[in-house]
Write a protein that binds this DNA or RNA. Sequence first.
RNA 1: GGAAGGGUGGCAGAGUGGCCGAAUGCGCUGGUCUUGAAAACCAGAGUGCCCGAGAGGGUACCGGGGGUUCGAAUCCCCCCCCUUCCGCCA
Length: 420
Amino acid sequence: MIDLKLLRENPELVREAVRDKKFTCDLDAIFDLDVNRRDIFTRTQEARSRQKAANAEVAGLPKGSPEFLEKIKRMKELSQEVKELQKQQQEVDAEWNRLMLTVPNIPHESVPVGKDEDDNQQVSAWGDPQTVSADAQPHYDLPVFKKFVDLAGGVKVTGAGFPFIVGPMARLVRTLLRFFLDEAAAAGYVEVMPPLLVNAASATATGQLPDKEAQMYEVPQDGLYLIPTAEVPLTNLYRDTIFETGELPLRHVAYTPCFRREAGSYGKDVRGLNRVHQFDKVELVKWVLPENSFDELESLRMDSENILQKLNLPYRVLLMCSGEIGFPHAKQYDLEVWAGGQKRWLEVSSCSNFTDFQARRGNIRYRGQDGRPHPVHTLNASALAIPRTLAAILENNLEADGRIRLPEVLIPYYGEKYLT
RNA sequence: GGAAGGGUGGCAGAGUGGCCGAAUGCGCUGGUCUUGAAAACCAGAGUGCCCGAGAGGGUACCGGGGGUUCGAAUCCCCCCCCUUCCGCCA
């Protein structure tokens, strides 16, 4: 939710932000409603005040006395007036809320204005893609791929995009999850296992609803959604909470499966493990004081980058442009790993600062120096998404004899040097 | 899924139609007293919104939503959640 004060005092900034982000929402309708809403609120309040005063008088009169009956008679009129105003207030407020939920967050000033991926800025890179063997293969073309990943089995049992991971690959997934979680714990994140289904209020607070409803699998019978990322249940754990300042920053890490409908995806993007409907991911979430949030974003990004470095996978860091960052995002970095077989970059992590946007929607606050509650800032990052990490390892670590070499750091975890 | 009992301020807990934003106790904050602490005593203390430069004032909130009534924490209806028992089940 956008800050109402900002919207009132600086409507052009918001208008520009909406345009830069390529979202549409009816700001003019909000401005009109805002005036109307305040007027009705004030009038309702005044009428209600008169009613309460009259009630206090009646309370002192003997029940059934002539004065009592006379007074009641006059108060019926007032009661009608109050009811009418309250009805109007409800209607205006509901519409106002509906519209407010469609206004995206404002991009931070450091975010480049742009319309598509060509306008993203590479801010850094690590490792050398050239070191990957020239005859590396896309993971889905490797002879061992069929042994490790059973796409056809998934299609039979569920549908496209729900692969079975088999044998050494399943073991590698388990290894990676443990490694990721251990790294996060060492960096100070408290591990939690959240629910994999969330209600509509949760999906609204983090910004999936109403903006990205089509992305989520739904269980209509129970009014629940399968989580597209652990961000949703994690962030919502502290919905309607007031933190004491000493409790921040708060850091959590969670491993969860993630479910995404990915409607409209096609072609090379969905081959092999590049994009699937169900995947495993380890997610980091932080709740921080507003004044620290952009520093916290950098350290969060480093937490994700460290994992890629330890895995010895070449990657680059992109600062996403205004047109590419999501609805609730103020600033977002994507970490893209080099997949030497496909000779392309695959996004394995997205590191984001949502500033106070999710906190306002979810009513997540801290008590400030002034003793009053204020919205916290929320951030999150993947560390990391499993399938594309697997793809990168398969493609970059192929030996001449056809075996897949494990990153050094995983050998003690996995117990062997090669994926067998 | 069925039955019964419940959901009130940080916690416990009173309140069954009007002066209840809500007793009381505990906890918390400040003060008095004390060399210091404890005890005792005094005072304060929720969140949102509206009006106001401010002081302050108003209003809403007793799980959520609707209804009855001049007036609802209190009565009625629907939903959610918790506890216990039964059923089912990893």
